[in-house]
């Protein structure tokens, strides 16, 4: 099994199915949080459901609202299982901490959006900074 090393993250260990795109992310800018889909027309994941997926994206973007929004989404069980970034901004890290959402970034092997494809199953261990690609 392939293990991808990253910076130590936040949140519990989780396993799930990847939803990946080389695009950036903001909960306010990009999501229809009521229906649990990407709603920004020019986002590469437009129309895709994100609930319980392992989101794999380039960087976090936009405003501070995402911090509270992650908490609110997790409370309604309308959140992804984890978010993996090339680089997270402060807001997504802060929001994940309050929400208990798993987040990791800064992968040693390079661009995480090209290392993980949509549909792959992975196990995320933020305490040890590891993402394991599970067999099909």
């Amino acid at each position: 099994m392939k293990i991808l090393k990253c910076h130590i993250g936040i949140g519990p260990k989780v396993s799930g199915t990847v939803l990946s795109a080389n695009d950036n992310f903001s909960a306010r800018y990009d999501l229809d949080r009521i229906n649990g889909v990407f709603s920004r027309p020019n986002h590469k994941l437009f129309g895709e459901p994100y609930v319980d997926r392992i989101l794999v994206l380039n960087e976090s973007k936009g405003g501070v609202a995402s911090a509270w929004m992650l908490y609110e989404m997790c409370a309604r069980r309308m959140a992804p299982k984890a978010i993996l970034f090339n680089k997270a901004n402060t807001i997504l890290a802060q929001g994940s901490s309050l929400a208990g959402l798993t987040i990791c970034d800064r992968f040693e092997d390079g661009d995480i959006t090209s290392l993980l494809d949509t549909g792959q199953n992975v196990h995320v261990d933020p305490t040890n900074g590891e993402v394991t690609v599970l067999p099909d």
């Binding site: 405003g63 501070v64 609202a65 995402s66 911090a67 509270w68 908490y71 901004n89 402060t90 807001i91 802060q94 929001g95 901490s97 309050l98």
Partner: peptide, 8 residues
């Protein structure tokens, strides 16, 4: 200042 989300 960093961007400080509401919780932080």
């Amino acid at each position: 200042s960093n961007f400080e989300g509401g919780p932080s």
